[in-house]
Design a protein around this nucleic acid. Structure first.
Lengths: 237, 237
DNA sequence: GGGACACTTCGGCGCCCGCCGAACCGTGCG
DNA sequence: CGCACGGTTCGGCGGGCGCCGAAGTGTCCC
């Protein structure tokens, strides 16, 4: 009771940080897991540099962003994966109504469909690619979704055999479900999701398209995913 | 990209609903999973009835609350478990700073410590009781946390043997980790967490203290938890 | 029917906050 | 050295929103 009372102001203050459209646009952009400069974000959000500077100040002091100053640039990124998860969760909560509002005819727009095919979500794979990988892991008995969301012992072996080390960190879970907000289905996040995504980018299974979050599977990636996870290459196109 | 752009206003609007201290207090109060009347919430939050009426209107049209009108009363409750999860997540995110701000000497205050011992979190057990149950399930190999968060086959058998049916619903996960914001550790939520909590209250393993979220383990509950999960009764006091 | 009660609507007040442009500061480059 | 450029600070403007009290609506109970 006393605890609960004390939580309300904090919760409101945290939510207030997210309750501005400009700041929300920044956080969503930063979901790509990379560091952006203040100027890039200002152009992205369509506001004056001075305005965005104030927003960044609030987000940083609020603990949502971490900053790194290099020369005359100010780079910001999401403070940690907890913040990323929070933004993802909120975005997923909003998705149903957003999807209903979205005109059907635009579903095939090129930029949108590239994002729908495959993208990164902070530091793991999302979109149809992310779903396909998650489904494949589940189908092969490497990941269990029927009783929660966790790798199996066979799953641990698969990561080991594939040469993808899973280093457990402080309290980030090894496997976690992240609700994809175009596919409306859970996909693999957590330490394993991040390691798999990093491996996929490092070994050239997929490459980033431009400077956006969208990713494309390479021929080498199709072969690897087909061999290791029995994923039909056609399902990714 | 186009999707992301469209998400920002929605995310901001959702966050704005949570960004008011009065509304936050209401949502936290409603985490007990029960329906409150408008008047109760107004007194709880310390604002005029007219003010709270407007807040309820926003929360209902925003989809966070469901309402039920009975006679001259307006009952509201959280719309669904997704909303409850969202509020829990936000509260957990805020907890670290709130805990740091909290004076040490008050830790043993009676109301607070009753809440810390055991409480319900929307529809599952939390507090030290929730942690103890989760730890016991894990220690007995019924719940796996090392590779994610999921029941094991033995765990499914345990629920069955204990006479606690697990009815899988639409897309709510069977087991989910909910981060406790007094204990700072994950405890069992999801379908299994809710079923266990309901069973505990139905069979008298624990009872609610007053009209708050705090719960107390009964002697019968101590015996049952000791027998079924090898929980030391002393750990719950 | 009348009165108490729960809730809602409305008008008005005051505050907060996001926005911009202009001035300012520091870095990097020619 | 000096200019260009990224970022910050400040003043001022405008809109939005939470709050209240008073008046209104509907329900229950005597």
């Amino acid at each position: 009771m006393t605890d609960k009372e004390a939580e309300a102001p904090g919760l409101a203050r945290l939510a207030a940080l997210l309750a501005d459209e400009t700041r929300a646009a920044c956080l969503l952009a930063l979901l790509d897991g990379r560091a952006w400069t203040a100027g890039e974000l200002a152009r992205h959000a369509g506001v004056a540099a001075s305005t965005l500077s104030e927003h960044l100040g609030k987000l940083v002091t609020g603990g949502l962003l971490a900053e790194e100053r290099q020369g005359r640039h100010r780079y910001v990124r999401l403070a940690d994966d907890r913040v990323a998860q929070l933004v993802e969760d909120l975005a997923a909560q909003v998705a149903p109504e957003a999807a209903a509002r979205r005109p059907r005819t635009l579903r095939a727009s090129s930029a949108g469909s590239a994002m729908a095919r495959g993208r990164t979500c902070y530091d793991h794979l999302a979109g149809r690619l992310g779903i396909a990988v998650t489904d494949a892991l589940t189908g092969l008995g490497l990941l269990r979704q029927d009783t929660g969301f966790a790798l199996t012992d066979a799953g641990l072996g698969w990561f080991d055999a594939a040469g993808i080390p899973l280093r457990p960190t402080g309290r980030r879970p090894l496997a976690r479900a992240c609700l994809d907000w175009t596919e409306r289905r859970p996909h693999l996040a957590g330490v394993a999701g991040a390691a798999l995504c990093r491996h996929a980018l490092d070994t050239g299974w997929c490459v980033r398209i431009g400077s956006e979050r969208a990713v494309k599977v390479t021929p080498a990636g199709e072969a690897a995913l087909s061999e290791l996870l029995r994923i039909d290459p056609l399902a990714l196109r």
